[in-house]
C-alpha cells in the first residue's frame, strides 16, 4: 500500500471519528453521563444508573474505539519503509490488530452482559469487564512491543538501512550543509 493510500485511509478514519463524536454530542444526556457527586463521601464521584447512561451511546462508542484501534495500525504501517512492507508485516500486524479489536469487543460485550443481567464474575481481583480492560488492553499493546522486537531487523532497521544511513551521514557531513538551513522569521 502506498503512502498516498495510507494517508487517505488515515483521513477517512479521522473523518469517521469526527462524525461519530458529532453524533454522540447530539444525543441527549441522561443528566449524569459523567457521573455524580457521591452522596456520602466528599471528593468522590459515583456513576449512577449504568444502563441508562450507556444505552444510547454504547454502539457509537464501540465503533469509535474500533476506529481508533485501526487508526493505530495504519499509523504503524505508515512508519515502516515502503520497501519493507511485505506479507509478513501485514500478517503480524493483522494478528496484533485482531487481538486488540477482540479485547475491545470483550470489554464492551461483557460490560453489556453485566448491565443486562447484573451478574458479576471476577478474574484476578476485578469484575470480568474490568479485567478485560486492565489485563487485555495491556497484553494487546504488548503484542505490538513483541512485533517491534522480533521485526526490528526485518522491518524497522535492516542491515541495508544501517549501511545507507552511515553513507548518508558521511555524505552530508562532508558536504556544505548551509544550503539546507532556512532563513529566520
Amino acid at each position: 500500500m502506498s503512502q498516498k493510500h495510507l494517508i487517505y485511509l488515515l483521513l477517512t478514519l479521522l473523518l469517521i471519528m469526527v462524525a461519530l463524536l458529532t453524533y454522540i454530542a447530539g444525543i441527549s444526556e441522561s443528566g449524569y453521563s459523567s457521573g455524580l457527586v457521591h452522596p456520602l463521601v466528599s471528593h468522590m464521584r459515583v456513576g449512577g444508573d449504568g444502563p441508562v447512561r450507556f444505552d444510547a451511546i454504547g454502539l457509537p462508542a464501540f465503533l469509535l474505539q474500533a476506529a481508533v484501534l485501526i487508526l493505530a495500525l495504519v499509523l504503524i504501517v505508515l512508519s515502516i519503509s515502503k520497501r519493507h512492507r511485505d506479507f509478513h508485516l501485514y500478517g503480524w500486524l493483522g494478528i496484533c490488530g485482531a487481538f486488540g479489536l477482540f479485547n475491545w469487543y470483550m470489554v464492551y460485550s461483557s460490560y453489556q452482559v453485566f448491565l443486562d443481567t447484573g451478574v458479576v464474575q471476577y478474574f484476578l481481583g476485578f469484575p470480568l469487564p474490568s479485567a478485560w480492560m486492565i489485563y487485555g488492553t495491556w497484553l494487546s499493546g504488548l503484542s505490538l512491543v513483541v512485533l517491534y522486537i522480533v521485526g526490528f531487523n526485518r522491518f524497522i532497521y535492516t542491515a541495508q538501512d544501517e549501511l545507507e544511513y552511515h553513507k548518508l551521514i558521511i555524505e552530508f557531513k562532508n558536504s556544505d550543509a548551509t544550503d539546507s538551513i532556512s532563513d529566520p522569521l
Partner: peptide, 25 residues
C-alpha cells in the same frame, strides 16, 4: 483485591466497571 472490588461494587457498581464514573466517552 477481589474484596476491595466487591465493596466498591456494592457502593456504586459503575465505579469498579471498566468505564468508571466518568463514562465511556
Amino acid at each position: 483485591m477481589q474484596q476491595a472490588s466487591e465493596i466498591i461494587l456494592a457502593d456504586d457498581s459503575e465505579a469498579i466497571m471498566p468505564f468508571g464514573t466518568a463514562g465511556v466517552i
